[in-house]
């Protein structure tokens, strides 16, 4: 055995030096953080949930575990962002969403790897990332077009113009579906922010890590801070407080238990919230024709009707 010789030979040392540097170099461990008000934050509670680094891996990673107060702070950020976001032209919102697609495209590998680490096979993951980018582009196109589809000039008995047009509602709280973790997350956020709403999202509990990488694309996409706020944590703990929150205009619940959604509807009654509950299966999220319909935008707009005197 070489060990018996008592030390490396001179001609070996050059080779092993490179190998040693590599083995000595520390791995860069990532601190996963939630995205609130344009900043990456830990939970104010300091709590985390442990997620396996990869399927079957014994090594764990810490993901923030959102608390009631993180929810409260996210609503403050979302409400503050609503004034500016809703006042932008649809055209400008479209430009920003298109840039989001660019940012996601640049991170496609990272997102794919994250989905694989969350349990998907690589092929499936790549399909999901591509579908997500396509969905962002689809909604970036809708931002200045859906209004014409849902507006109307209403016939009235009198010398008046009477017309109806959609407006954004305000802050919408969203529970994203467990799977698909990325496409589902983007798919429920996009139609809501396309019309000028801002969102507080509880990301998939099945694969919270991917939502963090998605946030990193949001943060570099010109999307103003606070328009999308993503929390990772237990839905059962945070949702009741969001449902009761008087500042939130609507709830969009994807794939939650019947008991939780019923409770959320009751808690939301105090502020007359619009509550939409939907449970699509995984295949349905990939159905572009159905999920890229402007009807998805229509779910979270307020219809404003105006009377205007008509001249002769």
């Amino acid at each position: 055995m070489a060990a018996k010789n008592g030390g490396p030979k001179a001609e070996d040392s050059g080779k092993t030096a490179v190998a040693d540097t590599e083995s000595v170099r520390l791995t860069v461990r990532k601190a996963y953080k939630m995205y609130v008000g344009g900043a990456f934050i830990r939970s104010e509670s300091g709590r985390t949930t442990q997620v396996a680094e990869a399927p079957g891996s014994a090594s764990k990673e810490n993901i923030p575990r959102a608390s009631r107060k993180d929810g409260r702070d996210a609503v403050v950020a979302a409400r503050a962002a609503w004034d500016g976001w809703s006042a932008r032209t649809g055209y400008n919102r479209g430009q920003i969403l298109y840039r989001l697609a660019e940012m996601l495209d640049a991170r496609a590998d990272e997102l794919t790897k994250s989905l694989v680490r969350g349990g998907l096979d690589p092929k499936q993951a790549a399909v999901e990332v591509a579908a997500t980018i396509d969905r962002v582009i689809a909604y970036s196109g809708w931002t200045d077009k859906y209004q014409s589809l849902f507006s109307s000039l209403n016939p009235v008995a009198g010398p008046h113009f009477n017309f109806t047009s959609p407006e954004s509602m305000g802050v919408v709280a969203v529970v994203a579906p467990a799977r698909p973790a990325l496409l589902g997350l983007a798919g429920c956020i996009l139609p809501i922010i396309a019309s000028g709403n801002t969102v507080v999202v509880l990301a998939s509990e099945a694969d919270p890590r991917t939502s963090v990488t998605f946030s990193e694309a949001l943060a570099t996409s010109d999307l103003p801070g606070g328009v999308v706020n993503i929390l990772t944590g237990p839905v059962g703990e945070v949702l009741p407080h969001l449902a009761k929150h008087m500042e939130i205009a609507a709830l969009d619940l994807h794939g939650v238990d019947a008991a939780i959604s019923k409770a959320a509807e009751e808690q939301g009654a105090g502020s007359v919230k619009r509550v939409r509950v939907r449970s699509l299966n995984e295949a349905e999220w990939f159905d572009a024709a159905a999920t890229e319909s402007p009807r998805w935008i229509e779910r979270f707009v307020e219809m404003k009707t105006i009377w205007h005197p008509a001249g002769q």
């Binding site: 409400r79 407080h241 009761k244 929150h245 008087m246 500042e247 105090g270 502020s271």
Partner: peptide
Amino acid sequence: RTGAYQGGDY
């Protein structure tokens, strides 16, 4: 008093 976070509109 109510246990619900409040909104500016009220």
